[in-house]
Write a protein that binds this DNA or RNA. Sequence first.
DNA 1: TAAAAACTAAGTATTACTACTTAATGAGGA
DNA 2: TCCTCATTAAGTAGTAATACTTAGTTTTTA
Lengths: 252, 252
Amino acid sequence: MLPSYQHNALIEQKDTSLITTACGTCSNARCLIKKNLNSAAVNTFTKHRKEIRCKKGQQFIMEGAPVTGLFFLLKGTVKVLRTGLHGKEQIVRFAKEGEIIGHRGFGTEESYPIGAIALEDSLLCYFSKDILQEVLHTDPTFTYGLMLFYANELNKSEVKVKSLSQMTVRERIIDTLLYVNRKFGQNNGFIALVLSRREYADYAGTTEEQVIRVLSALKKEHLITTKGKRIGIVHLDLLKKEISEHNFYLDS
Amino acid sequence: MLPSYQHNALIEQKDTSLITTACGTCSNARCLIKKNLNSAAVNTFTKHRKEIRCKKGQQFIMEGAPVTGLFFLLKGTVKVLRTGLHGKEQIVRFAKEGEIIGHRGFGTEESYPIGAIALEDSLLCYFSKDILQEVLHTDPTFTYGLMLFYANELNKSEVKVKSLSQMTVRERIIDTLLYVNRKFGQNNGFIALVLSRREYADYAGTTEEQVIRVLSALKKEHLITTKGKRIGIVHLDLLKKEISEHNFYLDS
DNA sequence: TAAAAACTAAGTATTACTACTTAATGAGGA
DNA sequence: TCCTCATTAAGTAGTAATACTTAGTTTTTA
């Protein structure tokens, strides 16, 4: 819970495989800041940007720690989670390049309601809450953009509420497979983002054994293939069809 | 799905029990517009406010209908829901005075992802999307306020995701009882908002029978009392204790 | 080659489904 | 205004389906 975790991450700047870029030359077209660079306020505030490197497995937002600012994921993959009863993780979402992380700390919250852990070596842009709030109070277009982002996140979350209360475990696992596949794509015939069975369970709201059992069944039905942790989708159409009745199409 | 439902509601202005008030003299301190009346842009735009009356049971937002604007609940109670598989309702939340309804239509959505039904005769303030967007693009404080509202809604929704995937049915029902009690208070020893067992089930993500069974059990344990539809909470502390491990405190 | 993760299977608990009875509510007519 | 009937909702119980727990073995990964 100590706030020094950010500094720890900041110091480790040895790895040169991740290239540092300023907002002006940043390749990340999906970034909200990049989209609003023509605004004077936004442009000024990018000067206060800090870069944070995270190694695989490193937690850069601690659940319950005071809110200091907002992160933009420049490169890498991150899982966002809440801790439940007996330490059981509820994975809220998986984030990729260009996405905002830590925005749940805004609002009335004093502390981050979520934790964030890098799933691979990642590069983050960081802006302090103070600086951000200044821009949000002066540039309505930027604020409106962030507001729309929240609105979309809210819709996604509520769709997930519905799916958790109305889908079976099998359906939720299929749904999770499709979500990860849609968002992160494939690589050599396998879903590009490699997750453990436990992580699938923590996202789908079930247990590791259930995930294993359902994946075994899907394998027997020749709908997927597996090789160790990696999962390949064979019949995307049939999997989609199985959950189509719930018309649950959640992008990103 | 026809857009004329609003006009139907608008015409029925016979009932005089609900008093019409303009934003300036409005008693609703919790309303976001009321809070921002000192802004010129907000003040001007309140002139475009329309008042809509809804009778008990009337649906004033149809799921899937094109987004036309935003509602502020001036008086009454409303349930917000999503329709799932086989017409099963998922109640997203119960809204009371001062709350915003239909905000889920903002974002990339073209149509309302939710439906809204009045649980009692209600009075709504309505603002068209066009007018609203104009203010949102000019007044950053108002936009920031709405953004914070979304941020809080997002937190609530994600807490609900966690509760659905980690709580038992009994816990979820207790949690729902506490939520409704906290939000709507008591009346003659019973929870002021009277809901059907089905509505409790649709909110808690279970079946009507399970709700009845759990309520019967709670009654036998002398934790609650019931009289017809009405439910009285006897031992608030014990009920709270039972779900305290999940540290699930969701206000409003 | 340890350690971690995947996988299997049996037993248990929980939850949903089906079918039914009983109580409460509301509308129309005397 | 009260009564009756129809309708709606509450409540009960047994069964089937689903999901979780536990305890183990095998495979994969670092």
